[in-house]
Computed example of a mutant assay.
Amino acid sequence: MRAPDFWSGGSGGIAPLLLSPIAKIYASATARRMTRAGWRAPVPVICCGNATAGGSGKTTVALDLGQRLAHRGIAGHFLTRGYGGRLKGPVRVDPAQHDSKLVGDEALLLAATRPTWVAGDREAGARAAVEGGAQAIVMDDGLQNPGLEKDLSLLVVDGNYGFGNGHIIPAGPLREPVASAAARCRVAVLIGEDEAGAMKLLPPSLPVLRARLVPGPEAALLQNQPVFAFCGIANPRKFFATLQQCGAVLAGRVAYADHYPFDEGDMEDLLAQADALRAIPVTTKKDFVRIPQAFRSRVTVLGVTLEWDNPTQLEALLDPLAQRVPIPA
């Protein structure tokens, strides 16, 4: 879906007001659901969640945590709903057999680095992961899902978007009140500068870890080069801005709805536009896995990683969890 324009920025406008009765029903349903007890897994469960619908950087944070667990010698497995995919699971993602239409784009990104499970039923997915050898589980999303007890929950916030207009779905992008989401989290993770003033909405007692997205090494090849950028992510402006920060010359840009399923017609049109501009077609890693295989060799990918202001703060959160990791028989 493409988020409505009124979800962004201030809280004014007639649409949020008209939709507020439905938003109250949505918020009440979420609050009731969260009173249910979840399954206590025999391994640590870490949740990378957010308070809003759409992207905030959860997958990037999950990938970072998976790498940190691996450096500690811990076999971390990813668990995700597989948004945009047909498979309900639980199923272990096999990039050689599964595409984004089956498991979603985020699952493929995760599975490229660590064992990854797709499951609409998070408890069933966690049980399958444990049986499959997981010594820890990292959830990409699931903060509003009560199926699993979490040992550590992180509230991921996109500094550029923040909490949108501050209203609950469908009046705004919030899945629940910010205070409710924050109450279930140990820390908040702010990605980028707090351009939207999101931090003032968080409880003063909630620690904030700060990080920024750093372009991958391929960025150097795009410096001073004309590029034609296209993507289907929650915040396309962030991708376009990143390209400009890398020194690329943005000759053209196209933004699609989040998780947009590119088909052959789309790609033929996009590549024709890039050729007409004599520009390099560039997209994100998340979009790349949704491009038909036959067109991938003609598209450049700009990847990003996280750079933490103080990584020792994050490592300190993982220290006590490492003590819960079961010792292999």
Rank of each mutant, 00 (worst) to 15 (best):
S8Y: 15
G10N: 12
P16H: 08
P16S: 03
S20K: 03
S20R: 10
P21V: 00
K24H: 10
A29Y: 04
M34P: 01
T35D: 14
W39T: 03
I46D: 06
C47N: 10
C48S: 04
N50Y: 05
S56Y: 06
V61E: 05
Q67V: 06
L69F: 15
G82Q: 01
G85P: 14
K88T: 13
R92Q: 15
Q97N: 08
S100K: 02
D105E: 10
A111D: 08
A111S: 12
D140T: 08
E149R: 10
L152A: 01
Y161W: 11
F163E: 03
L174M: 13
V178W: 09
A179C: 05
A182M: 07
C185P: 05
V187N: 10
L190G: 05
E193F: 07
M199L: 15
K200A: 15
L213S: 10
P217M: 13
A219D: 04
L222S: 03
V227T: 07
G232F: 09
N235L: 12
F239H: 03
F240N: 05
A251M: 03
R278C: 05
I280S: 00
T284S: 02
D287C: 06
I291C: 06
F295Y: 15
L302V: 06
V304I: 13
L306Q: 04
R324H: 11
R324K: 15
P326K: 15
P326F: 14
